[in-house]
């Protein structure tokens, strides 16, 4: 187990250097820079002066120099400062990630509560009318663009549920937890639609596969109750593919968050990235990309580990 963990991390090192190179290079390829944007269209300022402002921000340093600086700073746990505000990025990014995590986790919870039972029902009553209905529903759920469902939810809320859920922003720092929940609710509900559909589908197909296994037939033959068969034997073993797929869908979730946050003006990571691109704030962009890709790695690693928990037969060697 320990060796397995170590090996995964060793494999990670060259990958990590590559990721860092990519995340610092990509933003710098975008035309224009932070000084151009800060000066805007109305300023009368000489090109010399603008060049000076660039060098103050370290934008005139060569790419290898900037890469080396960034590696050094990262090694000391420093994400750098925003070019726009000059402020340290650590707290800013942490705040935004927490906001997005609220939405993502809430959506995941909704999806698990609705999606897994739906999948179980679909598998139990497969080839019945219900299963076809479920199948269609989940496909429709997958086909709906999140920004569209979000917009329509927003419309419904402004017209019929005025004041129940806030339509912009996030709760103030220090607000009680239920306030945060209230703000995260609509974005999470929007995000939950496709995630629920995915979950229901995987659960269903995994269950069907497991229900066809010999040991289920044996259990049934032994007279074990149907409920026990489904929930104790089948569901637990079906969870492996479900968890794997969820890990793979982390990208879908994080990607969906970008448009959803725009629709609800929810100041999470997605909105942060969009503004950082618009303002060419390289440090923000590279740090967020880096953290997200690390997060990806960690999630997939946890997924691997969870196999052992869900199916003790798998060992790590």
């Amino acid at each position: 187990m320990l060796i397995y963990t170590l090996r995964r991390f060793l494999q990670l090192t060259p990958m990590l250097l590559g990721v860092i190179l990519v995340v610092m290079l990509l933003p710098r390829l975008v035309p224009g820079d932070v000084v151009t944007i800060m000066l805007g269209s109305e300023s009368v300022i000489s090109p010399d002066r603008a060049a000076e402002m660039r060098s103050l921000l370290g934008l005139d340093r060569t790419i290898p120099e900037q890469y080396w600086d960034y590696l050094n700073a990262l090694a000391q746990g420093d994400l750098g400062n925003s070019l726009r505000t000059g402020r340290s990025l650590g707290p800013l990014i942490a705040d935004r990630f927490i906001l997005t995590a609220n939405v993502a986790l809430l959506a995941l919870m909704m999806a698990i509560i609705v999606g897994i039972p739906l999948g179980v029902i679909g598998a139990r009553y497969r080839r019945s009318r219900w299963s076809i209905l479920l199948q269609t529903f989940s496909l429709v759920g997958l086909s709906l663009p999140t920004f569209w469902t979000g917009t329509i939810l927003l419309l419904v809320v402004t017209f019929y549920l005025e004041g129940v859920f806030p339509t912009i922003g996030s709760a103030a720092a220090g607000a009680p937890w239920y306030e945060h929940l209230r703000y995260a609710f609509l974005p999470a509900l929007t995000l939950a639609v496709p995630v629920t559909a995915v979950l229901a589908r995987i659960t269903q197909s995994a269950m069907i596969e497991v229900l066809a296994q010999d040991y289920i037939t044996v259990a049934r033959a032994k007279g074990v109750g149907e409920r026990v068969v489904i929930f104790k034997h089948a569901l637990r073993n079906s969870l492996i593919p479900v968890v794997t797929e969820l890990g793979l869908q982390a990208g879908l979730i994080l990607g969906g968050v970008v448009t959803i946050e725009l629709v609800f003006s929810y100041p999470g990571v997605g909105l942060l990235v969009l503004t950082a691109i618009n303002q060419r704030d390289y440090p923000i962009l590279q740090s967020v990309l880096l953290i997200v890709s690390l997060l990806f790695f960690i999630i997939n690693y946890l997924v691997d580990l969870s196999y052992g928990f869900l199916n003790p037969r798998i060992t790590y060697t």
Binding site: L26, L252, G255, V258, V273
Partner: peptide
């Protein structure tokens, strides 16, 4: 290792 849409947004910006 990057979410598709984030990657796409940056590439389109380029």
């Amino acid at each position: 290792s990057f979410p598709g849409l984030l990657l796409a947004i940056v590439i389109v910006a380029i």
